[in-house]
Amino acid sequence: MTLPRKALVCVDDTPYYHVTSRCVRRSFLCGVDHASGKDYSHRRLFIEQRIHLLSSLFALDIAAYAVMANHLHLVVKLSPDVANDWSDREVLERWTSLFKGPFLVQQYLKGVELPAPEQQVLNEIISIYRQRLANLGWFMKCLNEPIARMANKEDGCRGHFWEARYCSQALLSEEALLSCMAYVDLNPVRAAIAPIPEQSEHTSIKERIRPSLNLAKSITNLIQSHQLNHFNFTLKPMLPFDGNATDKHQHGIRFKLKDYLELVDYTGRQVCNDKRGAIAQNLPPILKRLGIDQKTWLNNATAFEQIYRKRFAKTRQGTNKVA
């Protein structure tokens, strides 16, 4: 018997989930239509930038992602407690960055003082929005619907674009989390699209290794198109690696990024009979391939969030000057 979605996603059991969405038209999501010769690869950047944008607005973090030709993978961490700490105004500003909102919300954001009955209705609306901004289903709705609309418009057709809303799988242990992240990051390698993880386009592992300025610029353009500058919007980097478990509170992944890269590299070298690709055995280890010395590596690994945000801020300033 099929379980309801609310029974499949329970933050009390685990905050980590592996989410997949697959296209009905198979290779027409982001790949090449071999019948017509049309190339839809440009959609990958749109999907990647929207993943980053939505994770910055919702109370969840992205641990891993891969945008493939006919499907996409996400590993997310839900953080509903974060949404509880937002002010009422911040909740409304985040929600109206994606949706227009009713007249009461628009009036409140303009600074109009509402009478008591209308304020009570507004408080109920805020409570609903707060729950939605911490909900995996609403996150996927905001991700998948614009993709489907764009694809249907480009294809000149109607109807379903995705096979289903999405599929989710709870990751109940650290081993399950790391193995799933490695599986997601190795998708292009296993599909023989990329020879090594650091050359896998539109994946989280490449973004962690070398944060893309092109991606930051495209997200900046998306922010401006959505008019998100009306509140203090900050681009959220992916869920960081916090290192080994300690007595202190750790929001990120309790593993070292260096060790994770080596884990992915080792896993990718193993040949799977049901997969086309694998990392060549004669290649040097991933850290040597990246040409990163120990001092530079430690600096980048420990200050990833600051570096990511700094690059995004520079890109945003440059875009504003051009505008």
Rank of each mutant, 00 (worst) to 15 (best):
Ser204Gln: 05
Glu93Tyr: 07
Ser27Gln: 11
Lys258Phe: 12
Ile292Gln: 06
Gly252Met: 12
Leu104Gln: 07
His202Gln: 08
Trp297Pro: 01
Lys288Pro: 00
Glu201Cys: 09
Glu90Lys: 12
Phe103Cys: 13
Arg316His: 08
Leu228Ala: 14
Lys310Leu: 12
Ile223Arg: 04
Asn187His: 00
Phe46Leu: 08
Ser127Arg: 13
Leu104Gly: 02
Ile125Ala: 06
Gly243Glu: 03
Ser55Glu: 11
Asn299Ala: 12
Glu90Asp: 10
Arg289Pro: 00
Ser225Asn: 12
Leu257Val: 14
Ile219Ser: 03
Ala134Tyr: 03
Val67Asp: 01
Gly137His: 08
Arg130Ile: 06
Leu78Asn: 04
Asn282Val: 05
Asp155Leu: 04
Ala313Gln: 14
Ala63Glu: 05
Ile126Tyr: 07
Lys110Cys: 10
Ile47Val: 05
Phe161Thr: 00
Val82Cys: 13
Ser225Cys: 08
Asn84Cys: 14
Phe28Glu: 14
Ile125His: 06
Leu298Asn: 12
Val184Ser: 00
Arg289Val: 02
Gln281Asp: 08
Lys110Asn: 10
Gly137Asp: 13
Gly31Tyr: 01
Leu263Glu: 06
Leu287Met: 09
Ala303Thr: 14
Gly111Gln: 02
Leu72Phe: 07
Leu133Cys: 04
Thr302Met: 08
Cys157Lys: 15
Glu124Gln: 15
Leu45Asp: 00
Phe58Thr: 01
Cys167Ile: 08
Leu239Gly: 02
Arg130Thr: 04
Lys38Phe: 10
Ile62Tyr: 08
His226Lys: 15
Val82Thr: 14
Gln306His: 13
Asp13Thr: 15
Gly101Thr: 03
Gln120Ile: 11
Asp265Val: 06
His73Glu: 02
Thr296Ala: 11
Asp259Leu: 07
Leu186Trp: 03
Gly111Pro: 04
Met68His: 03
Val112Phe: 10
Arg130His: 09
Ala148Tyr: 04
Ser21Phe: 03
Leu235Thr: 01
Arg132Ile: 05
